[in-house]
């Protein structure tokens, strides 16, 4: 008979994987999203249009599909399966995890880049001009005046997107990444016990609540002052 503790132990590894996928995705997707946002605003038109087309494609197709492509394309089309790549040292788990992470990072970088771009483009022109006539350099203007306003602009959409990421991590199971949902569904499949699934649900709920709380605090800190 499974107890709360024994289930917890079984889910623990999946729990760790979910957290790792979540934080590593944020860690890489945020800077990459910034880069994408810059490229999508590049003066050189071909770069701008290529970037925007790429973002459009990624945002317009299911993450599920992207996961499948990233993980299975190398093996099926190029006869060089992910699991055989040297860098993964024959660890199938690591290979699938990294493949999934790659897809998550690309996908979320595209969503973030659109948020960043919106946040930057929403800054009134007058703010830049005020900085300019006050003799600030471009970088002074950006870091001292513009950046905090951009951050404020993007808090709400970022909060939504990051909560979505919490739940999207469950998709990684489709490419054999044993995250928490996968672990719980295995218990269901093998032992016919359903409550671990609710346990998992509670986990996602708590996780989302924490994320929302975090962004709420940041937003409150910033809007103490303006608008």
């Amino acid at each position: 008979m499974e107890t709360f503790l024994s289930v917890s132990a079984k889910l623990a590894q999946g729990f760790g994987t979910t957290l790792a996928l979540f934080f590593l995705t944020l860690l890489f997707a945020i800077p990459l999203g910034l880069l994408f946002a810059c490229l999508a605003r590049a003066r050189f038109k071909p770069v701008r249009w290529l970037m925007r087309a790429f973002i459009y494609i990624i945002r317009g197709t299911p993450l599920l599909l992207q996961l499948m492509i990233v993980v299975y394309l190398p093996g099926i089309v190029f006869d060089h399966p992910l699991t055989k790549w040297e860098i993964f040292h024959q660890s199938t788990d690591l290979a699938y995890f990294c493949g999934a992470l790659f897809a998550f990072v690309i996908n979320y970088a595209c969503y973030f880049s659109e948020i960043f771009r919106g946040g930057i483009e929403n800054i009134p022109k007058g703010q830049y001009e005020a900085c300019e006539v006050l003799g600030m350099s471009k970088s002074q203007a950006f870091f001292k005046v513009i950046l905090l306003q951009v951050i404020r602009n993007i808090i709400a959409p970022m909060s939504n997107e990051v909560v979505t990421l919490v739940k999207d991590t469950a998709l990684a199971r489709t490419v054999s990444v044993v995250e928490i949902y996968f672990a719980a569904s295995e218990i269901l499949r093998l032992q016919f016990i359903i409550w671990p699934l609710f346990y998992t649900g509670a986990f996602y709920l708590a996780f989302s609540a924490l994320v929302t709380l975090f962004f709420g605090i940041v937003e409150k800190k910033l809007s103490r002052y303006w608008r």
Partner: peptide, 17 residues
């Protein structure tokens, strides 16, 4: 040379933060 001039805008453009 821009220090020779100052400009006050129609829409103020104060820094909100």
């Amino acid at each position: 040379n821009r220090t020779n001039f100052g400009l006050v805008f129609q829409s103020f453009n104060l820094f909100p933060q």
